[in-house]
């Protein structure tokens, strides 16, 4: 029996979670097969618990593990790193909890902060570096760890309370569209709730849109000055947060 056939048989047995002894495995291997079947699922559940610590805390052991096992059954891991396995767990949770959007939002925040933790390094620029910038042609280079996710609930406040070991607030729908930006400042992952204006400005900057064009597109026919003032404030906040890593001509 070929090695490929043996490996396919063992893989399929593990994925199925049971069934007949795969061809090639010695008759004494029944107990060992059970060990590998259990270890596969236990390791993946442990990985998801580790990455989604606060989502786990929010859902509790039973709710979280049921969601994890559902995810494992639907999406077997493919990548060489266990970290990658967590990437689409928030989508699984969104499907399992369609009426509780804070669950997927918490998971997105858990995952994004983990991703920022070991994302690419980049040095932020200083205020002085902006002094000679020609804003008519300049475009911002933002931190490579920056990611933005839309939210409909106060999930950031819930996550923050869970992270501090405090009782989380009740779920509330936000009165207006909002988002959370996640990035790493120095070695520390950060997050901040932002409004729809900042979300759009960041999204355009990430798309490579120049600063002048970005202001022009964000401004309506009558509020150019207000938008420029707002963008000035955001530039200051982004500099303070270490989000700007370069300015391209």
């Amino acid at each position: 029996m070929s090695l490929l056939a043996i490996q396919r048989g063992l893989r399929d047995h593990i994925l199925a979670g049971g069934g007949d002894r795969p061809a090639g495995v010695a008759p004494s291997g029944e107990a060992g097969l059970a060990v590998y079947r259990r270890a596969y699922r236990a390791q993946l559940v442990a990985c998801l618990r580790d990455t989604f610590e606060h989502t786990w805390s929010w859902l509790g052991d039973d709710g979280f593990d049921a969601a994890a096992l559902s995810h494992i059954a639907a999406r077997p891991p493919g990548g060489w790193t266990l970290d990658a396995y967590s990437e689409d767990f928030s989508q699984t949770l969104a499907g399992l909890y369609p009426d509780d959007p804070e669950v997927a939002e918490l998971a997105w925040l858990d995952w994004s902060l983990r991703r920022a933790f070991d994302g690419p390094d980049a040095d932020p620029i200083t205020t002085e570096a902006l002094a000679r910038v020609d804003w008519e042609s300049a475009a911002l280079t933002l931190s490579p760890t920056l990611t933005i996710g839309a939210v409909a609930t106060n999930s950031a406040a819930i996550w923050g309370a869970l992270a501090e070991g405090q009782a989380p607030p009740a779920v509330e729908r936000l009165p207006a569209p909002a988002a959370i930006r996640v990035w790493r400042q120095g070695l520390s992952p950060q997050y901040r709730t932002i409004d729809a204006f900042e979300q759009l400005a960041l999204a355009m900057a990430l798309d490579g849109c120049g600063f002048a064009r970005l202001c022009e597109q964000l401004a309506g026919p009558d509020d150019a000055e207000r938008v420029i003032a707002r963008m000035g404030g955001l530039l200051g906040a982004w500099l303070h947060d270490g989000l700007i890593c370069g300015v391209r001509a």
């Binding site: 090695l3 490929l4 063992l10 590998y36 596969y40 390791q43 891991p77 493919g78 990548g79 396995y85």
Partner: peptide, 18 residues
Amino acid sequence: GLEGFNSHDLLPLPYTEE
């Protein structure tokens, strides 16, 4: 792992010539 699947476990090999 095999063919796009990764078990993240150390699975045993048959000790054969192949």
